[in-house]
């Protein structure tokens, strides 16, 4: 069994009226099945409101399923006794870099998780040193987070999660508020962690460029997983992606246009090199 597994997962947001009675329910996650192996790099795509963030919050036991079950490393997230173990196993990075950094000094923020876990002081320091080095932020350890760029802040947030020594990190649109350079910086750091530390990565995003190098992609729409496969498989279905309010990288789109015009081009072209070699063969 994989590191994260979901079976018929469902979640309803409840809306209460003034008397505290349930007025309406809204299905945010609907019949989702996942099986993620340790060490995989998974991307979850979906437009705003597709339920991908709600799903992410389940992996950290921040939300509990209304229906079905989600296991993190064989622990049922619904079992309260395991909540803290689950949160340590599956760390979470959020969208807004400012709203997840707690301390006024970078290294103290990275130490926040281990402090909460009750790690002895000397070990906290080793973990903090380690985590800062892994995301390349050691030089900034004494800085105030307010003086950092968006990309740097997100790397600090990632270090804060890594210091808890998780086996899996869930990143909930970590690049949505960053500029292109910050985005690249964060995605590069995450890929490196995946490769060198063998951390399972679950990246939630709506930027297509960021999922090209993922092992597998899930596409969500109105709470359901509507497509899944390798990036190549997913991106060969251009029209379907557009239907789910998503798009594809320009090179994939160009290849698709050329194919529509009768050229003999394979589906799911992801890089400039691929297209050039097909056209100039």
């Amino acid at each position: 069994m994989g590191i994260i597994k979901a079976l018929k997962l469902g979640f309803d947001y409840l809306k209460y009226d003034d008397d505290g009675n349930v007025e309406s329910t809204q299905r945010a996650v609907d019949d989702v099945n996942l099986d993620i192996e340790a060490g995989e790099f998974i991307a979850i795509l979906g437009h705003n409101g597709s339920g991908k963030s709600t799903l992410a919050k389940h992996m950290n036991a921040l939300l509990l399923p209304s229906e079905g079950t989600l296991w993190v490393d064989n622990m049922d997230t619904a079992s309260e006794a395991d909540t803290w173990k689950i949160r340590q196993k599956a760390g979470m990075v959020f969208q807004n870099p400012d709203n997840q950094i707690i301390a006024t000094v970078v290294e103290e923020d990275v130490g926040f998780g281990p402090e909460n876990m009750g790690i002895p002081t000397a070990d906290i320091w080793t973990r903090v040193d380690d985590a800062l080095q892994k995301v390349g932020m050691t030089t900034y350890r004494h800085h105030s987070p307010n003086k950092l760029s968006g990309g740097q802040k997100q790397r600090v947030a990632i270090a804060g999660v890594m210091a808890m020594r998780p086996s899996c990190i869930v990143l909930d649109e970590p690049t949505a508020m960053l500029d292109p350079n910050g985005r690249k910086e964060v995605i590069k750091a995450v890929h490196e962690l995946n490769k060198t530390e063998n951390v399972t990565v679950i990246l939630i995003t709506h930027y297509m460029e960021e999922v090209i190098d993922a092992d597998r992609v899930y596409v969500m729409d109105s709470g359901k997983v509507v497509m899944q496969g390798t990036p190549k498989e997913i991106f060969s279905r251009v029209e379907e992606l557009k239907h789910y309010r998503l798009d594809v990288p320009q090179v994939t789109l160009l290849a698709h246009e050329l194919k529509k015009n009768g050229l003999d081009i394979p589906d799911g072209i992801l890089t400039t090199e691929e297209l050039v070699s097909v056209l100039c063969r």
């Binding site: 959020f94 709203n99 926040f112 402090e115 909460n116 876990m117 906290i124 320091w125």
Partner: peptide, 24 residues
């Protein structure tokens, strides 16, 4: 921001001062 921060703190295992160690 307060809401986001509370979530982020919970996600990093914050559960008050009990059994908490200190980095410094």
């Amino acid at each position: 921001r307060a809401n986001d921060l509370a979530l982020a703190m919970e996600a990093r295992c914050y559960h008050g001062g009990e059994n908490r160690t200190q980095m410094k």
